[in-house]
């Protein structure tokens, strides 16, 4: 008879843990050889990505607020201009206060690369590289690489066609992809460690134009997969940003190497 309450207790504990896993926490990814949608002349057969861990969801306002409180250098009224532009965390009611327009479970936006990088370091983590991000984001709900599926592309494109006037939903609301990660698409753009490695021509029609001098011996990156608009647009977005820059639709999540 006494076993039943114990069992129920364990069951409820498991459920709580499972529920907690739907937001926050880390997902292990096995890595492997991955072919980018970008034409990488130095890695035509793909890049080897070592196993790594990626945060399940983007960093939230609440998590970033904790960081700002314990690292006051990153308050918007104290951060140096060279590390964050003037609109850094502009959507918060105060330097260390969210207010009603910045809900705790929304992904944090208006963050610069330097701030995102500092946050991840404070968690003994780092930002994911572009390769790692692209690899994790190639999955849909069932498959690890859904990139050739037109339906996958259409769902991603649908996000681009929705206007930004609606408030951002909370993280974790989206269903998990095949790895268990959420919100890689459809919520916010995300910083990567090597955002400035996306050497693309500012006129994106010049696919692979040979201005070798501009990038020291290389032409601008082009896409090998013209149909992969999701990647194209993400690359265009990241390549338009400076490290101190921030936008209303740009957040981040962290990664760890085991």
């Amino acid at each position: 008879m006494r076993r039943i309450p114990v069992l129920l207790g364990m069951l409820s504990l498991t459920c709580t843990v499972a529920a907690a896993d739907s937001a926050g926490g880390w997902v292990s990814l096995p890595g492997g050889v991955f072919r980018s949608a970008l034409e990488l002349p130095d890695a035509p057969d793909g890049t080897r990505i070592p196993a790594f861990e990626l945060a399940r969801t983007p960093v939230t306002n609440r998590e970033f607020l904790d960081f700002v409180r314990s690292h006051p250098r990153w308050r918007r009224d104290r951060v140096p201009a060279v590390l964050a532009e003037s609109r850094y965390l502009a959507h918060w009611a105060g330097p260390a206060e969210l207010g009603s327009t910045a809900l705790p479970e929304q992904p944090v936006t208006w963050v610069s690369w330097f701030a995102a990088e500092a946050y991840c370091r404070s968690q003994n983590a780092r930002l994911p590289t572009w390769n790692e991000w692209e690899y994790a984001a190639a999955a849909d709900a069932l498959r690890r690489d859904a990139r050739s599926d037109p339906a996958w592309r259409e769902t991603i494109l649908a996000w681009y066609s929705r206007p930004s006037t609606q408030p951002l939903p909370a993280v974790g609301a989206d269903s998990a992809n095949a790895y268990g990660l959420r919100d890689l698409h459809g919520l916010v753009w995300e910083w990567v460690e090597d955002y400035s490695a996306l050497l693309v021509s500012a006129d994106n029609r010049e696919q692979g134009a040979a201005d070798s001098l501009e990038f020291c011996g290389a032409a601008a990156l082009s896409t090998s997969d013209r149909d992969n608009y999701a990647v194209l647009m993400r690359v265009a977005m990241l390549s338009s940003l400076e490290g101190a820059g921030a936008t209303a639709n740009l957040g981040f999540r962290c990664a760890r190497s085991p």
């Binding site: 890695a43 490695a197 996306l198 050497l199 001098l213 990038f215 020291c216 490290g243």
Partner: peptide
């Protein structure tokens, strides 16, 4: 980032970078 230099590490150890 603070200097405004963009660079990419290549598989063979070389780099593409702006000047």
């Amino acid at each position: 980032g603070v200097l405004g230099v963009r660079y990419r590490a290549l598989a063979d150890g070389e780099f593409n970078h702006t000047t």
